[in-house]
């Protein structure tokens, strides 16, 4: 059956999509956070330790991973509310480094550099599909609600948002909590899926991969991460040269997207379509007025 050959790829796509949403929420709210690997590591170690060391069942450990991620997101949002722009990126990068180096250091708990192995595989494709479906539904509802609109305002102009009565600190905290919870949840799922967890998994490569999904897909729409993640996961499978030069292609995509299509594929096309629509309406309007002027009153 041909589906079986692609099943690992589908699973990888589903896990990556979860991390992509975790990254998207903060970018959507205008926070330059790159803390998703830290949340993923926290959630991943949480469920790995609970299941492998203490024989805990899957559902509570994954839920606890979600809660830990969310709490971490909330805690980090308090100090980060004081920083802006690139400094938030530096601070969250420091956070990722702290979490990773603690994972190396706390050897009795995390297994140090070798990590934790032989984690029972308690998560399969159907579980991942179900969770991802719920997450997509949640993101859709969120983007249609007042929260989504508040995020959009804060991303475009904080000042305008503040004058319209949108609390910057509160909505940024909310974005961090959602990002942390999603990161923790999928980190937890990942370690129950791939048998093993080690600090190296949450390094620079993870961070750039997740950023690429969002830059490619777009920071605003629900469809964006799906497209971005699907393209990046599928690219190495399409042809051999693409797989061999994966890093190079990834770098080139990042640079080309940010230069030519800074809103990503989905958002960029949406913007272009709307602009065309607006121009056509404008043209029709002008022609109508001209016809009116020629005909005279």
């Amino acid at each position: 059956m041909s589906f079986a050959a692609y099943q690992p790829l589908l699973d990888f796509f589903l896990l990556s999509l979860g991390f992509a949403y975790s990254q998207q929420v903060v970018l959507r709210a205008g926070v330059f956070s790159i803390a998703t690997p830290a949340f993923a590591a926290l959630g991943g170690y949480c469920s790995a330790i609970l299941v492998q060391r203490y024989g805990a069942p899957a559902i509570p450990s994954v839920l606890l991973a979600l809660v830990i991620g969310g709490v971490a997101g909330f805690l980090i949002s308090i100090p980060l509310a004081r920083l802006r722009g690139v400094f938030q990126a530096i601070a969250t990068l420091a956070l990722v480094q702290i979490v990773v180096s603690l994972a190396y250091y706390l050897e009795p708990l995390t297994g140090g550099a070798t990590g934790i192995h032989n984690i029972p595989k308690l998560v399969n494709t159907w579980h991942l599909l179900a969770v991802v479906a719920v997450v997509i539904w949640f993101m859709y509802v969120l983007s249609r609600s007042g929260v989504g609109r508040a995020f959009d305002v804060l991303r475009q102009d904080e000042m305008v948002g503040a004058t319209l009565g949108v609390s910057i600190a509160r909505y940024h905290a909310l974005a961090f909590i959602i990002s942390g919870a999603l990161g923790g949840l999928f980190g937890g799922l990942q370690s129950l899926y791939v048998f093993t967890i080690e600090p190296e998994m949450f390094g620079f490569a993870f961070l750039t991969a997740v950023l690429t999904y969002i830059i490619l897909g777009g920071p605003r729409s629900v469809l964006g991460p799906i497209v971005g993640t699907a393209v990046m996961v599928a690219l190495p499978e399409i042809s051999r040269p693409l797989a061999e030069h994966r890093q190079f292609v990834q770098g080139a995509i990042l640079m080309a997207m940010i230069v030519f299509l800074p809103h990503g594929l989905v958002d960029g096309l949406e913007v272009a379509w709307r602009q065309r629509q607006a121009r056509r309406l404008d043209k029709e309007d002008r022609e109508k007025r001209r016809a009116h002027a020629v005909a005279g009153p």
């Binding site: 722009g85 190079f248 770098g251 995509i253 990042l254 940010i258 800074p262």
Partner: peptide, 23 residues
């Protein structure tokens, strides 16, 4: 030319970093 480039420059330089190191 686009003005606010803080974040865009960060992303572009990550891309450049990936390309150079893979070379």
């Amino acid at each position: 030319s686009r003005g606010q480039i803080e974040f865009a420059a960060l992303i572009a330089s990550i891309g450049a970093n990936l390309m150079i190191s893979s070379l």
